[in-house]
Design a protein around this nucleic acid. Structure first.
Length: 409
RNA sequence: CGGGAAGUAGCGCAGCUCGGCUAGCGCGCUUGGUUCGGGAUCAAGAGGUCGUGGGUUCAAAUCCCACCUUCCCGACCA
């Protein structure tokens, strides 16, 4: 991708509306556009990251046997009235009527709709178990949207739902999801902790939260100074009796054992081996994708900009040309790298070197290639590793090998 | 929804206390020149209903009232 042709217009100064660091860098680096309070558009750069996060999620969800679908964001209100959650979620629902006066809402979550699917299609225990998931925008009329993507009115969620004949099946699927989630967050480059949590408005008895430590977090956990474990309560560490300190946390995932809360009310049931009708035992599993996104930045940055983990960076390489190095030479290097699967953002702009470097740091791709004097004189391409600030000078051949090693290709 | 802060060019701001504005600065943008390994420089330009509506006044960015928007803290929540 040529920088000069890309829809990347970085800001020189910090945007006034952004208080927290992730939001600041997302706006400054042209990843995100604020449409209104709590409403954001993902710009091309941001969408590339979002796509990578989604691919990681899809990979691990599919591996666990879950099947992706896409349910409607528009939902009829009558199904919400059946479960009574029209009242529970009344405050945050975007509700309106269609031309026939039918009440609709923009889905704040999808337990009702997915349970309805099970009711319609599933009749026998033989069809169980299965897990369905989707990655989709959810809508909540937040009283106070804040911190950019952290709390917004339109946000992207990965929501999964498991369907089992009994509690044992649910336990197995729940364990599978727990494993998948750990793999997802690890691959996305965030350090997280898993805690037992309240089920809240979702219902059910068991639930776990996935949290990332950050000053902008809205939840609080207590971290043991002795064994480094996290707890909900602030008394002394139950494991090693060490002292506990408060740590603010961002909730990026939450999984629930729902049981039959929805299936019994909405009549999603199957016949078991004995021919007896049983409500399906359900679990639900959420990842706040649009919250995970800035969380990655909160824990991967420096004072120059974002330091994307390789797994989710918008491009693999920022290529910077300096001092009148021929466009064709740099374009050729770009082609070679792209042919081996390395995404390159080639900064071909005719501007001061400092601007190019600072934009490269801000945008945060893992590697910065520099073609300048060292290329014109010695045919060497300089590499700067964004994270470690390590610097190398390589020939074209060495460069190809370098990336083969770095990306296992 | 309570409490606080802010709205002046694309971005960041000054001006407001004490009304005199034909509204300014930095960056960015356009054209041309010189530069060219770390936010260069010279010259010439373009760009504004000072958030909106009302009021006071000879005169309002500036004073008064109402509203809107945004941010932060709280309550609430993924």
């Amino acid at each position: 991708m040529l920088f000069s042709k890309s829809f990347i217009y970085t800001l020189r100064e910090d945007p006034k509306v952004a208080e927290c660091l992730s939001h600041k860098y997302l706006l400054k680096g042209c990843f995100l556009h604020m449409v209104s309070s709590g409403i954001y558009s993902y710009l091309p750069l941001g969408l590339r990251v979002l796509d990578k996060i989604n691919k990681i999620i899809q990979k691990h969800m599919n591996k666990s046997g879950a099947q992706q679908l896409l349910m409607s964001a528009l939902q009829p209100m009558d199904i919400w009235k059946k479960t009574g959650r029209d009242k529970d979620l009344e405050e945050v629902m975007f509700k309106f009527k269609d031309r026939k006066d039918k009440e609709l809402c923009l889905g704040p979550t999808h337990e009702e709709l997915v349970t309805e699917l099970a009711r319609k299609y599933v009749r026998s225990y033989k069809q169980l178990p299965f897990i369905l998931y989707q990655i989709q925008a959810k809508y909540r009329d937040e009283p106070r949207p804040r911190l950019g993507l952290m709390r917004s009115c339109e946000f992207i969620m990965k929501d999964a739902y498991s369907f089992d004949i009994d509690q044992q099946g649910l336990d197995e699927n729940y364990a599978k999801m727990l494993t998948a989630y750990k793999a997802i967050f690890k691959e996305c480059g965030v350090d997280f902790v898993v805690t037992e949590a309240d089920s809240g408005v979702m219902g059910g008895d068991v639930s776990h939260e996935f949290m990332v430590g950050s000053e902008i977090g809205e939840d609080v956990l207590f971290c043991c100074q002795g064994c480094n474990k996290f707890f909900k309560q602030g008394k002394e560490c139950p494991e090693c009796k060490g002292s506990l300190t408060q740590q603010k946390m961002i909730e990026i995932g939450h999984i629930f054992k729902l049981g039959t809360k929805y299936s019994s009310v909405l009549d999603a049931s199957v016949l078991d081996k004995e021919g007896k009708r049983k409500p399906i035992v359900m679990g639900c599993y959420g990842i706040g994708v649009s919250r995970l996104f800035p969380s990655i930045i909160e824990v991967n940055h420096d004072d120059k900009g974002i330091v994307w983990p390789k797994s989710v960076s918008p491009y693999d390489v920022s290529l910077v040309t300096l001092g009148g190095v021929a466009f064709d030479d740099a374009a050729q290097i770009t082609h070679v790298l792209e042919n081996s699967g390395i995404d390159v953002l080639f900064d071909d702009r005719d501007i001061a070197a400092g601007v190019k470097f600072n934009d490269a740091y801000l945008v945060g791709n893992p590697y910065i290639l520099i073609m300048g004097k060292n290329y014109s004189k010695n045919n060497k391409i300089d590499i700067e590793v964004r994270k470690t600030e390590e610097k190398l000078s390589l020939s074209k051949e060495e460069l190809a090998n370098f990336f083969k090693k770095e990306y296992n290709i």
